[in-house]
Write a protein that binds this DNA or RNA. Structure first.
Length: 579
RNA sequence: GGGCGUGUAGCAUAGCCUGGAUAAUGCACCGGCCUCCUAAGCCGGGGACCGCGGGUUCGAAUCCUGCCGCGCCCGCCA
């Protein structure tokens, strides 16, 4: 289409750089698929937008005739795809196992996500990071990239003094038991309560931190107990969620501790390390504190301890120099935005990475309660992820019992898990990630609207059709265009709407991946499912007597199901055969 | 105080980067549809000064600016 327009516009002496930015998806779908507003050309051509649109229309009409119809109205050129074009596009997608999504030149990305803290309950913030991170990893891998999963577990730092002392107070067995059943929050709270109320305990805790950092073997053994028991619990949650993270992906903060002194050394070598009130700091510039003084990034505290920033810098050095990463993604909440901006700037100043590295803080909004307040883990009640996921599965099972009593036994359990977990993940992925996310049980588990169960239901319905049909689905994928001949080329409105949506899939997937925005894909899949539902209600498929028509509709079913399955799949959401 | 973000029907969201025609979607609400491929569904309907005021433009939810509300961040936590 572009060459045709280019030729036409050239004859009007309008350069590509002028009209190309103007053309875009039509905002009023009744008018067409693609539109070119001509108003801004009026002064250049000294004609009314209406006349220009009409003229362009005449110039391109003939060349575009095989694939589209062109019309003009109130200064817009409107282009509508013809069924012939749609059928060609559909047939390309049908015959392609990747559904039109191209592979790219492979790059290596480190994706930093999940990051729960040892001996602390995982909360809904970790859920967001885990679910979004998992979907990004899957999408990148599907595009042919290498995604290195990194679970930056909080397993190091001053709180471990009090945690280890509390472990000793309880007795190892008792403590392991408490942690093993996932009662991390009360364990942490008890330790903290003692730390603030009991001076003797606080002293012991501080001494224990020194022992831990000094590498005392007994202390390290106790620390290991805490880490292992917590990880056992985290893994249970990961397994329920069905995410790709395993023990192989754990890159605890402790694993960077030997690199931290090197960060100080190297910052010193490049001459940007400064002393301030006994601490080693770097001034990235561009930020000021309350008093208007330059804001430093603390690299090494006055007491010799290191900071989160130091650890992040060590991380960057490691990823660039040892792992050879082309890009790093940090799936971490928006509140840490400034922190990452400063870290990235320092890393560039220090030469740890350069402009060629794609470094992105894949930020996401806070998780709010239904009353709009931030859900916090420190003092208020935490919703335990394990309980939350169980609740989701239980509610899904209740709904299945009610709607489809024929589904029983193991299969019902399996479907309940697929639907319940899918609902939780989808609720998170389907909102624009940088905005705050309202955590609402009802909404999340409601099986209506833009939710995973709605999409899964569409998928299950299609599976049901194919079970009844009994034919070979592969046979639908090769000769699609031959099914659109003669009077059959008249597609019904529902078929047209569905087809238009289906062909957008590869574009949307790419857009979703390059912007790390799963919600765009969610939105598309919902519109596919929605137009499928409409198609399903209004067009008979198996009951259609005309064999070609029936086959054509089966092919649309096949493509719809595959888009739903692949689309949800690259976001880490499963689809059930029945529900 | 400084910085960042956000404000779209009763509720929840998309659209904003890259300005276009009648602001899109879901829930809720109103009215229809199951002797028929799964009604977790479909068809139809009502409901929005896109926070407020200026500006740029032929054209602003979108860009600029000033207010207002809300949220977050701002040197030894992560």
């Amino acid at each position: 289409m572009a060459p045709t327009f280019s030729k036409a516009m050239k004859s009007l002496e309008v350069d590509d750089s002028v009209w190309l930015p103007l053309i875009g998806k039509a905002t009023v779908q009744d008018h067409g698929d693609v539109a070119l507003p001509c108003h801004s050309l009026a002064s250049r051509l000294r004609k009314s937008p209406q006349d220009i649109a009409e003229q362009i229309c005449l110039l391109v009409e003939e060349d575009l005739a095989p694939i589209a119809t062109v019309s003009s109205i109130s200064g817009f050129v409107n282009i509508s795809a013809k069924p012939e074009w749609l059928s060609k596009s559909l047939s390309l997608l049908l015959s392609d196992p990747r559904l039109g999504i191209e592979s790219e030149k492979p790059l290596t990305f480190a994706v930093d996500y999940s990051a729960p803290n040892v001996a602390k309950e995982m909360h809904v913030g970790h859920l967001r990071s885990t679910v979004i991170g998992d979907s990004i990893v899957r999408m990148l891998e599907f595009k042919g990239h290498r995604a290195i999963r990194e679970n930056h577990v909080g397993d190091w730092g001053t709180p471990f003094g009090m945690l280890i002392e509390h472990l000793l107070d309880l007795g190892e067995d008792q403590a392991a038991n408490e942690l093993g059943v996932g009662d991390l929050d009360s364990f942490y709270k008890q330790a903290r309560a003692k730390f603030v109320s009991d001076d003797e305990f606080a002293d012991r805790s501080r001494r224990r931190v020194v022992l831990l950092q000094g590498g005392d073997s007994e202390t390290l053994r106790l620390w290991r107990v805490l880490v292992d028991e917590s990880m056992r619990y985290f893994n249970e949650v990961y397994s329920m969620l069905g995410v790709l993270l395993t023990d192989e992906d754990i890159r605890g903060e402790s694993s960077y501790r030997d690199l931290l002194p090197k960060v100080v050394e190297r910052l010193n070598e490049v001459g940007i390390l400064e002393q301030s009130e006994g601490a080693d700091v770097v001034f990235p510039g561009g930020w000021v504190n309350r008093e208007g003084d330059p804001l430093p990034m603390i690299i090494r505290k006055a007491d010799g301890g290191y900071n989160y920033s130091t650890s992040d810098l060590a991380c960057i050095i490691d990823r660039v120099e040892r792992m050879g990463c082309d890009g790093f993604l940090y799936v971490v909440g928006t509140p840490q935005k400034q922190h990452f901006e400063m870290v990235f700037q320092v890393a560039i100043q220090a030469g740890f990475m350069d402009e060629d590295h794609q470094v992105t803080h894949v930020n996401f909004g806070s998780v709010l309660d239904t009353d709009g307040k931030v859900l916090k883990s420190r003092e208020g009640e935490v919703i335990k992820l394990h309980d939350l996921l169980e609740e989701a599965i239980r509610r899904a099972e209740d709904a299945i019992n009610q709607k489809n009593p024929d589904l029983v036994g193991e299969e019902r359990k399996k479907v309940a898990r697929t639907v319940g977990i899918g609902a939780v993940k989808y609720a998170d992925l389907s909102t624009e990630r940088t905005k705050d996310y309202v955590f609402d049980w009802e909404r999340m588990l409601s099986f209506e609207g833009n939710t995973a169960p709605y999409l899964q239901y569409a998928y299950a319905r299609i599976c049901s059709i194919f079970r009844k049909w009994g034919g070979e689905r592969d046979s639908l994928r090769d000769n699609f265009e031959s099914l659109l001949k003669d009077e059959l080329s008249i597609l019904s409105n529902e078929e047209l709407t569905l087809s238009r949506r289906l062909v957008e899939f590869p574009t949307i997937v790419d857009e979703s991946i390059t912007t790390f925005s799963p919600h765009k894909l969610c939105k598309h899949l919902h519109s596919v499912a929605s137009s499928f539902a409409s198609f399903y209600e209004n067009c008979s498929i198996l009951k259609e007597e005309n064999a070609m028509l029936s086959t054509r509709r089966l092919a649309l079913c096949d493509l719809t199901a595959r888009e739903l399955q692949l689309g949800l799949g690259i976001m880490g959401i499963d689809v059930p055969e029945r529900m």
